[in-house]
Nucleic acid binder design. Structure first.
Lengths: 208, 208, 208, 208
DNA sequence: CGCTAATCGAGACGGTACGTCCGGTCTTGCA
DNA sequence: TGCAAGACCGGACGTACCGTCTCGATTAGCG
């Protein structure tokens, strides 16, 4: 993360166990207390670590929570369920399941809110969280093209725009359903949403 | 807002001008400082008001910001541009324009984040902000049905589910585009999005 | 202390009881913990006061301790025991008794040490502590001149120099005996010291 | 200092140059920063030494500063100026000159203050600093007796008491003049003080 | 038209978290 | 084994903000 030089220079090296413990403690604190009542001192105590160790590795609450929440999205996988619709439904359900967890709910929107005034933080969110998700969109399209469900996209720029649009629609809809409407993004909702999305994309494709 | 008793009991009544000044000051502070650095003392000073006056009317930072941001959405209107597609594009553009303003960006996501752990706050957001937007979806559908662009919906429960889905998709996509992807929801994007949405809804309708 | 204007302007006035409680708590903490382990948070807790209240009234540990210790010297009185020698012995014994108390021992030298690098602090010490003591020297000499034990001093500048010398010798000797040599400045020692001082002053007077 | 075994046991022996460098660095830091802002890390850096090396040789800040300041008093010598009065004036002037140096001012009172709650520290101060000074009093008296300026003291216990008194008066007066009154102990002041002291001692002697 | 009661500006108050700094201890690898 | 480097735990620092409180000074409307 912070030092790409594998040749650790001198002095006592940083404890790698501490990183793991700190991020886990951060998620536990998010579950119990939520973002606004989360204290760095409390995280440090839960992790069995001094507050200074925290500040040595992260610039502040925001950066720490981004990394802690980002790990939640590591388990996202593109399932191979035989058809594009089923694959999408599967991945959207996984995404919804993660968002339903309180550590994600509490932390994610808060750091997004902070990122509106902090470009470095937004970049960190993009790298740690967003890109990890967007990759699934690209993989899913490639697999669908292999299967012959989608035609090859001749214009790469147009392809990127479409991928961005899909991503904003999918992520945005699930987030809004979960956090703002506070309704569960369950199987039924995901099926309805996926059908609208796929039909819309197919139709919009041939129109243009 | 808080006292429905029009029969003001006795003593000096509350200054109505103060409310206006406070909400305006809150928005100004949001623009300059953002959510996390906004101080109630600072808002009070900008509004030329004592801090106590603030606490006499709002329970805290969250409630104050909800009301301040809610006023931004008062100007949302469903335009009559002749077709369903044009109407939707128009209203989505308006919504995107509001979200692009820094006072909305800074404040909205923050209170949504807080609302994940505060049911009263979520209810306040729903009443003050969300319902105000969802009404446009219903109005738009009614007008389209009048025009004959959409068939009358026989099942009212199914109609409500569809309206909720539309609302989550529209609001979620615009918010995600604006705040997470940090790209402008401009005319081109809105046209692409609207086409996908309308085609998808139409197609999904027939299938079911 | 800080505002001589009796016309308290506006806002809630400062609690006068707090000052008393804080200074007493400071002395108690000095007794138990000594200067270097004394914590402002601990003082605040003992006084039943918030830490912020402390910082609102004193700039830091040094200033607080100066005021707390200064009150100890309020009880110094010039006794009227009939002769210059007896009066001096009496006041030196009082001074030694105060210095023997742990709250004075711990605090006094520490703030003097700090004052070597902080002119404002030195001035505060001079006003609050030193001048209060030096006044006794002047009173004692005036009384002795009234009694006819000492001749009237014709040169006022020379008189001031002598008073300063007396003060440095008396205070310095008692402090050094108590804190550095760590021996009690008891009656015997005080008698020996006083005799040397008075004989020396009388003799030096004639010589010049 | 702490390891008296001259037969260095095994492994790398301790660098003797380091001690010198550390004590010099401590004095330099005292001059620049004063006691309270002096940092062991800063001393180590100035001395080109690791912090661990420091802690291997001294128990803490207090002990280090005592040793650093003690070296300043090594240069005190009893001059032979022909008469008791001149000798005393000379040694008092030397003492005053050392106390006027900022590294002494800053450090000395601070460790004395600490010593009020730390017996081991007081003992260290007595051995390293006080005894070194008190020896001069004894030497001076012996020389004066050789010269015939002072009678031989028959009672050794009384002699010790008198020496202690002299020492407390001299050291105390100079310290108080320099640190508390913050006035220079210059030639004129020293002459006045010495005259009072000698006359007093002579007079008190014959009285008893 | 003066009483009465709630409001207002001001600012001190008890708390709590912040981010920084330092004291001492420990764990590395090199000499 | 000593040593430089530096990470580690613990704890105090001084600051800032929150939400409450206590002042004296205004204001309405009711009597």
């Amino acid at each position: 993360m912070q030092s790409r030089t594998p040749a650790a220079r001198s002095g006592r090296p940083r404890s790698t166990a501490a990183d793991t413990a700190i991020l886990a403690a951060t998620r536990a604190a998010l579950v119990e207390l939520g973002w606004s009542k989360l204290t760095l001192q409390d995280v440090a105590t839960r992790a069995g670590v001094a507050k200074t160790t925290l500040y040595r590795r992260w610039a502040g609450k925001n950066e720490l929570v981004v990394d802690a929440v980002a790990e939640l999205f590591d388990e996202l996988r593109l399932p191979d369920l035989g058809s594009l619709a089923a694959d999408i439904e599967g991945v959207v359900l996984q995404f919804a399941a993660i968002l339903a967890r309180p550590e994600a709910k509490s932390g994610l929107m808060a750091v997004v809110a902070e990122s509106t005034r902090d470009d470095a933080l937004r970049e960190r969110i993009r790298c740690s969280i967003v890109e990890r998700q967007k990759r699934l969109v690209l993989e899913g399209r490639a697999r669908a093209q292999t299967r012959g469900e989608l035609p090859a996209e001749p214009d790469p720029e147009q392809a990127a725009r479409t991928a961005d649009l899909i991503f904003d629609v999918v992520a945005g809809a699930v987030v809004h359903r979960t956090l703002v409407s506070a309704e569960p993004a369950d199987g039924e909702w995901v099926r309805s949403f996926t059908r609208v999305l796929l039909v819309g994309l197919a139709g919009a494709e041939q129109d243009s």
